[in-house]
Design a protein around this nucleic acid. Structure first.
Lengths: 181, 181
DNA sequence: CATTATAATAAACACAGTGTTGGATTACAA
DNA sequence: TTGTAATCCAACACTGTGTTTATTATAATG
């Protein structure tokens, strides 16, 4: 999209900063990570950082956006037709698969050292898929609570799976989640 | 316990710092809160802060511990016999009640601007209560996932309820949570 | 390959928060 | 009322921030 993506130097700068961010976020909350620490780990000059990002938060958000874009692109490619018609379990399996391929990244962005933006994006994406209403003897308020309960539960299972090395196959996980809902 | 609790000056210092912390954590992640900002809001000298706390994290953890201690004391007082024998729903209702009385505090400590220590304490407490195993046709791993799903879901309902002003009565909430489990 | 454009670097800057100190003040408990 | 101790105040060196300037290195292009 932007021209600057074409220059190898810029591409490299962004890449090493992304790696440094992930590495540090494995250990500490992102808001305690200094620009200096990022640059030292990435082995770039601090002024180079400021040439591309406003601050740490800006870097994190750009990384989050990039990951979401790539995930959406991946789903577009791998899912034959429009999302809505597809079986939720099938879509979910693809998401698990993609996350597995980018395990550290997802682990960090969904974890307690990140902010909640990425989590919200994932929730939004996955709710397009599995937006089946159920029991309508319940009032709206109760439904809200149930929705809250379920999404938090799913995210936390997702995160646990990533954190522990994606041992179970993707379709098994998507199956488990499907049964819980 | 400690003598220092008896001096009004110390009591006051800790109180105003606690208030300042809660107020600031309503707006920003605790790790971005400076000692300076806390002291200015609490209207105390910065060296006074360091006389009592190592840093912001120390303050947060002391507050968390204090809240947990008070909660346990409250439960001891309000529950006739030992916890184990009591009906889980009854205990849970008491927890909701106590949280409602300290709404801002619980809201902040359970929210996304805090660390996960308090959340873990609450989970630990509530799992003493509702540790009923279920279906043993399931393997251990699946059970782990289900447990993860449930606790995350419960905490998030709890937090939602606090964040939105504790509208529903405590027993109704504990009932809802009980049915979901 | 040589030229041109621009990204990255290095060094310096004022500014803000940190954690600590020593001495003056103030408020407390007894 | 008096001795004790908590608080305040001012100063300290230190670290990270965000910006600027001139210089060097490297990529894109003809």
């Amino acid at each position: 999209m932007n021209k600057d993506k074409l220059d190898r130097r810029i591409k490299n700068t962004k890449q090493v900063l992304k790696n440094a961010l992930v590495k540090l976020m494995m250990q500490q909350h992102f808001s305690t990570i200094s620009v200096k620490a990022l640059c030292e780990l990435a082995d770039i000059n601090r002024s180079t950082f400021y040439a591309h990002y406003k601050d740490q938060t800006d870097l994190l958000h750009q990384v989050e956006e990039e990951v979401m874009d790539n995930l959406r692109r991946y789903l577009d490619k791998v899912l034959p037709e429009s999302l809505d018609n597809k079986a939720p379990a099938f879509v979910m399996t693809r998401i698990f698969e993609y996350a597995k391929e980018n395990s550290e990244l997802f682990q960090v962005l969904l974890g307690e050292n990140s902010d909640y933006l990425f989590q919200e994006d994932i929730i939004e994406l996955s709710q397009i898929v599995s937006s089946r209403n159920n029991d309508n003897t319940l009032d709206a308020r109760t439904k809200d609570y149930i929705k809250e309960y379920r999404t938090a539960g799913c995210i936390s299972i997702f995160h646990k799976w990533l954190k522990e090395g994606c041992v179970e196959p993707s379709d098994e996980m998507s199956n488990l989640v499907g049964r819980l809902l």
